[in-house]
Nucleic acid binder design. Structure first.
Lengths: 193, 193
DNA sequence: TTTATTTATTAAACTAGTTTAATGTTTTGA
DNA sequence: TCAAAACATTAAACTAGTTTAATAAATAAA
C-alpha cells in the first residue's frame, strides 16, 4: 500500500530501509469518495497528503463566485494547502476529489517529529518545495506571456493522461478562461487538423 | 556589512552566534551598477544572493520580445534563479540592477557545504522556499481571478516603497499588462478621487 | 547647457476573451 | 429505466486589454 510513496521519496533523496520505513509509518490512509472534500475553505490544513489513487483538484473561489484551479493531483502527486499548513491560518482553498480517491496523509505534528528526528526529511521537503516552486514559476511566466490557445495546447501535450480524466470546465478553470472560450479554441484547433 | 543578512536569517530560524558567523562567512559582496546584470539568459545560475542595497528585477523575455517580470528584489530580499540553480541548466531569466546595487552572494558549492555541515541551514532554505512559494501561489490566484486594475491597486498598497522606485513600464511588466493600459488605469483611478 | 534617450499620456482602431442564453448530448442517480 | 443534472457547443453582443502612433515631459549624457 505504501510502495508508491516509498518509491516517490526515493526519487528525491536516499534513505536507509529503516529510515524510510519509520517515516512512512507516520502516514495513514484516507478514502475520499468522488465529490467529497479533503479540505474546505476556512479550515486549517493540518495534513500533507500523497495521492495513491484517484484525482483531486485544488481550487479557490473568488468573491464573484468564480473558481480558479491552482493544480490537480493524481496518483503519485503530493497535495496540501502549503499556505494554511505552514502559517496555521484558515485555508482559502478547497481540495475536492473528482474521482473516488485514496490518499496517504501525515499530520503536522508527525511531520514536525520527522523533521526533528530524521534530518534527511528536512532535505526531502526542501527539494520537493523547490521543484513545485520552479513549476509554478514556469506556469506564472506562461500565464503572463502566452495566449489561452497555446496554454491549452501545451497543457494537453504535457499531461495527456490528465486531460482524459477532466471535463472542459475543469481545464478552463485551470487555464484561467471560460469554458465557452475553451470550446472555441477546441473548435479552431480541430478545424486546423 | 553582513548585519542585515544575519538579521534576516534570524527571522526564519535560530542559530548560535558561531553558526550564523560561519554561514555568513561563506558570502561575498558584489557590486552591480545600474543597468548591469547579475545573471543573463543562457548562463547557469551558480549563486544565491541577498540584496543589501539597490533594486533588481528578475525577468523573462518571450519569443515575441516581450518582458515578463517574475519579481523585484530590494534590500533584505533574496534573489536567484532557483530553477537554473537547482537543475544546473541554462537560465531563461535576466537579473538586472535597476539602481546601483550591492548583493551578498553564496556559491552553489558553499551552499552545499553549509547543507552538509550546518543542518539548520537545510531548514532555513526549506522555510524560505515555502514562504516564497506561498507568495507566488497567492499571486497566481490573483492573476487568474482579478482585473488588472485591482491587481495594480493591491500592488501599490502592498509595496508602496517599491512603487516609488519603479517606472510604470516595470510595473506594467510585473502586472502582465501594457504600459499604455496601465496609464488608462491610473487615469481612471485619479478621476475617481 | 544642449541634445538624445527614456518615460508617460492620449486617441483610435482592433482583438482576445467574456457574458448570456439557447440547444443538444452525456452522465448520474433514484 | 427514466428524469434530473451536468456538460459541451454555438451564436451574438459586449468589454478588458492591445496595438500603433503621435506628443509632451522627464532624465541622462555629452
Amino acid at each position: 500500500m505504501k510502495a508508491l510513496l516509498k518509491q516517490n521519496i526515493a526519487k528525491h533523496i536516499s534513505l536507509s530501509e529503516n529510515e524510510i520505513e519509520d517515516f512512512c509509518n507516520l502516514f495513514e490512509q484516507k478514502l475520499i469518495p468522488k465529490k467529497n472534500f479533503l479540505l474546505r475553505e476556512g479550515e486549517i490544513c493540518k495534513f500533507e497528503g500523497f495521492v495513491t489513487k484517484g484525482l483531486f483538484r485544488v481550487y479557490h473561489i473568488d468573491k464573484n463566485g468564480f473558481e480558479q484551479i491552482l493544480y490537480f493531483a493524481i496518483e503519485n502527486w503530493w497535495v496540501t494547502d502549503i499556505d494554511s499548513f505552514t502559517t496555521e491560518t484558515p485555508s482559502q482553498l478547497f481540495i475536492e476529489a473528482l474521482e473516488d480517491s485514496e490518499v496517504l496523509v501525515i499530520s503536522k505534528k508527525d511531520k514536525e517529529f520527522a523533521y526533528a528526528n530524521l534530518p534527511k526529511i528536512e532535505k526531502l521537503f526542501r527539494v520537493m518545495t523547490q521543484k513545485t516552486h520552479v513549476a509554478l514559476q514556469r506556469r506564472m511566466i506562461d500565464n503572463l506571456s502566452k495566449t489561452a490557445e497555446s496554454r491549452y495546447i501545451e497543457f494537453t501535450e504535457k499531461y495527456p493522461q490528465l486531460i482524459q480524466r477532466l471535463s472542459n470546465i475543469q481545464i478552463a478553470a485551470y487555464l484561467g478562461i471560460t469554458n465557452v472560450f475553451l470550446s472555441n479554441i477546441r473548435k479552431k484547433i480541430a478545424v486546423k487538423k
